[in-house]
Simulated assay, not measured.
Amino acid sequence: MQTKRPAVVALAGALCLAATACGASSTPAANAAAGASAPGYPVTLKNCGETTTYTQAPKRVVVMNGASVAEVSTLLALGLGDRIVANEQSYGRSEVAGRAAAIRRLPTGNVTLNDASDIPRETMLGLRPDLVLSTTSYGFDAKNGFATREDLRAVGANTYVSPQGCDQDTSRMTIDDSYRLARDLGKIFHVGDRAEKLIASSRRHIAAVRAKVKGETTPNVMVVFSNMSMGGNDFSSVAAHGIWNDILARAGARNAFASASRTTFADLSKEKVAAEPVDALVVISYNDPHAEAYARKLLKEFPQWPAAKNNRSLVLSDSIYLGPSNDLAVEKIARMLHPDAL
């Protein structure tokens, strides 16, 4: 999720994705479609206004960047890493032990990315995918130099846009969208039992945390991407609306800057940030090895914050965004804010 294009376009557009086109008869998906369906198939999904049908589990999956790790992390959590032929997603770190290393080991398809830090059209078609995953519809927009859903359908490949990504507005995203992503991929790959176990485990974990923090005070938390610039002000990567607000609420907190913008991100002056009584700071690291230093810098810059006086900050990466590990973010934030309760 998502430093100007990849931050501005990937985060603002993606929180916004390949060689010569192959004929449909030469693709794995087209060959499968010509024969009988595998056991448990066909599976039909409606996704962003399109109906896609699967006659077997995809075997050549391409995961577009979109400044996300939601899709690749969900595939790994469902035990489907061996289906990936090209993955362009990485946050460089993860709250899940071994997850970042597992992502680094995945094939990249030896892709030369375009100016939007993603897979250009001809390269995408040359990868011969049978399924392409994109965080938002941005990844299938011809104006951005990408293969469209129609282009991919013509060579026998299905496409999937993650929840709340149809209109590229992720401000309405909640933890339930992470569950929907897992459930949809479970259906596509005929591993629905794994998806339901993952979802049930997350729900239990979050419910246990919520029960412990019930009745506690509700601190104001600033959520900001580390060392990113996406606007004209000093603080242009402040999270205002989206899945983090749902995570904060379940951890017994509120977003300090939810009223500062109606969109996913707020573009704020230093004065606006300074005026808010921030009780705690959550820094999101997107491929930034210096996120902890950035957190310390902010606390030093705003010594009037209760967060600075109490040295209360936390660095998270994939768990606070769409994906299979939101329960970890809920617990870590709750533990920072309500240590006596947990």
Results as ranks from 00 to 15, higher is better:
324 P>M: 02
190 H>C: 09
91 Y>A: 13
181 L>A: 00
30 A>P: 05
65 N>M: 08
72 V>I: 15
17 L>F: 12
186 G>Q: 05
301 E>W: 05
73 S>R: 08
112 T>Q: 10
58 P>N: 00
193 D>K: 09
114 N>V: 01
292 E>M: 01
301 E>K: 09
51 T>Y: 09
85 V>W: 10
311 N>L: 07
217 T>P: 12
74 T>F: 05
123 T>A: 11
168 Q>F: 08
274 A>Q: 12
32 A>C: 11
23 G>R: 08
103 I>W: 12
335 R>W: 09
212 K>T: 03
143 K>G: 14
251 A>T: 08
3 T>S: 13
333 I>F: 10
50 E>F: 11
254 R>I: 13
21 A>H: 07
84 I>W: 07
84 I>F: 02
315 V>N: 03
108 T>S: 14
177 D>K: 04
213 V>I: 14
129 P>S: 01
43 V>R: 14
29 A>Q: 14
145 G>A: 00
273 V>N: 06
36 A>E: 14
93 R>D: 15
239 A>W: 09
157 A>W: 11
139 G>M: 08
220 N>G: 11
309 K>H: 09
206 I>Q: 01
213 V>P: 10
126 G>M: 08
274 A>L: 11
47 N>P: 12
90 S>Q: 09
329 A>Q: 09
6 P>H: 11
320 I>E: 03
154 A>R: 13
112 T>N: 13
262 R>N: 12
40 G>S: 03
169 D>W: 09
143 K>L: 10
323 G>A: 02
292 E>W: 06
199 I>N: 01
193 D>S: 11
192 G>W: 05
279 D>P: 06
218 T>M: 09
63 V>F: 00
270 K>A: 15
61 V>H: 04
69 V>T: 15
259 S>Q: 11
201 S>K: 14
338 H>D: 04
63 V>I: 06
146 F>R: 03
181 L>N: 00
87 N>G: 02
85 V>K: 08
312 R>P: 10
342 L>D: 05
337 L>T: 00
262 R>E: 13
47 N>W: 09
291 A>R: 03
153 R>W: 12
81 G>C: 02
110 N>Q: 13
15 L>G: 15
43 V>F: 06
159 T>Y: 05
309 K>W: 07
138 Y>N: 07
55 T>R: 13
30 A>V: 04
5 R>E: 15
178 S>P: 09
72 V>M: 02
66 G>T: 00
174 T>C: 02
308 A>I: 04
216 E>W: 05
208 A>F: 06
166 C>Q: 00
132 V>N: 04
167 D>I: 08
320 I>L: 15
270 K>V: 12
172 R>H: 10
168 Q>H: 08
60 R>E: 03
170 T>Y: 14
152 L>M: 03
223 V>F: 05
24 A>C: 12
20 T>D: 12
94 S>C: 05
277 P>E: 01
42 P>L: 00
304 Q>Y: 02
51 T>N: 07
135 T>N: 14
106 L>Y: 03
217 T>M: 10
296 R>E: 14
291 A>I: 05
213 V>L: 08
281 L>K: 04
78 L>S: 00
114 N>D: 15
272 K>P: 04
163 P>H: 00
100 A>V: 06
262 R>T: 13
26 S>H: 07
21 A>W: 04
177 D>E: 12
71 E>N: 15
49 G>E: 03
55 T>N: 14
212 K>I: 02
183 R>K: 08
308 A>W: 06
